[in-house]
Design a protein around this nucleic acid. Structure first.
Lengths: 221, 221
DNA sequence: CTTGACGGCTAATTGCAATTAGCCTATAAT
DNA sequence: ATTATAGGCTAATTGCAATTAGCCGTCAAG
């Protein structure tokens, strides 16, 4: 069937486990079920395989961008959600993000490969930073900005609040990447983190009620 | 002079920039100012150089353990410090940790090498985790535990509070490792993070005063 | 039915980089 | 003064892994 695609897939798996230099073209071929020279019918050379993976990753990334959701509802489309977000919804947001990053097969392998090869090629460092630092921070920063405007969360500095939300998620992710057995422990910490985050940043009760009234009024009109 | 040591030093620099597999024995030799075959007078083979770096790192790590200080005062020895710690001292703690990790030449190169090679060898993943996740969390957890007992900071969950303090530092560190030009930006975020952390977790003013009285009383007796 | 593109194979070839052989000098110990 | 050792060099050697050459079967288009 689609040998060309299978090559990319197996190559990504191997690169993510051992790094580009430690993977032999023959290894990739074997996994695909062909001999090494046959690979060259599909790709010019080993580097071309690597580059094709990068391209595909870039394509998928653009497709997926902004597709993260809160409990099935499209996050950006319905800004009203954030006016009454509950602790449970915040938990959902964090868990979705964490589990998507951790379990999505393509994402996970790709992240590991980036981690290994990032100092080899500045392009990769940039992709890594964008995908795991800048983009999540700016996306969530926007969400939290909405929540703060709505009075659901309270802070002087949304950027730092976002860092407080995301940095622990990022750190737990790097822990699980290195040692998958620690995932249960990480999930517990994740929940505890988000609950504590919520109680630190949630508006006072007065403000909650105030806000609910406003929302009700708006909904009636 | 001490060629054997210079080999380790140059090798570490190269490994941290390009990864073990992409560094040629001849590169290391050139940097040291000798020819490749001469290296074998000092080390059995390339792998032995790598292993020697690991050993040396382990030795230095044990030496340095617990040597982190708050503004020059030994952190662990004088637990009283934490009873009246100020925002500035907290800033000092965070900056010291961050700048030590980021600028200490040996630490920085070693961390980059670990990052690149961690999936190649489980030992390295373990060292990385210990050095950049578990140890900092448990060390700071202990400090924060003292501060909470002393009533300087307030929380239900010291472990999560520690994560809230350290995870952003860790994340900013990984950003600067990949792109040193972002260090000024990271330092600003670091300060803002710690100030916000302090205002989120600091005891109420009542409790401050309460605590100061107690401390004074204790000091007088 | 034949032809050409596709994709597979085996058997070279190539090229590089680690390592070894073997030699040479300086110096420190006997 | 002799000699052994440490540490450097040049010139092989080795070995592996990427790549190329060249062959073959299949199958779809004409």
């Amino acid at each position: 069937m689609d040998t060309k695609q299978r090559i990319l897939d197996e190559a990504l798996t191997l690169f993510s486990e051992k790094g580009y230099a430690n993977v032999y073209v023959a290894d990739i071929a074997e996994r695909v079920g062909i001999k090494a020279p046959s690979l060259y019918k599909h790709y010019k050379n080993k580097q071309a395989i690597f580059d094709a993976i990068l391209e595909e990753m870039n394509r998928r990334f653009l497709e997926t961008a902004g597709a993260l959701q809160i409990n099935g509802a499209d996050a950006v489309a319905d800004a009203d959600i954030y006016k009454t977000i509950s602790e449970d919804q915040l938990l959902g947001l964090g868990r979705n993000l964490f589990l998507y990053f951790l379990h999505d097969d393509y994402t996970r392998r790709f992240r590991k490969m980036l981690t290994i090869e990032q100092f080899h090629d500045k392009r990769l460092a940039d992709v890594y930073m964008k995908q795991y630092a800048d983009d999540p921070l700016s996306y969530q920063g926007m969400l939290f900005g909405l929540m703060v405007s709505a009075g659901v969360l309270k802070t002087d500095n949304v950027q730092i609040m976002t860092l407080h939300f995301y940095a622990p998620i990022y750190m737990l992710l790097t822990i699980c990447d290195r040692d998958p057995e620690r995932e249960p422990e990480a999930l517990n910490l994740l929940d505890a983190h988000i609950r504590q985050f919520n109680s630190l940043y949630a508006r006072d009760e007065d403000q909650v009620n105030e806000n609910k009234k406003k929302t009700n009024r708006r909904n009636k009109s």
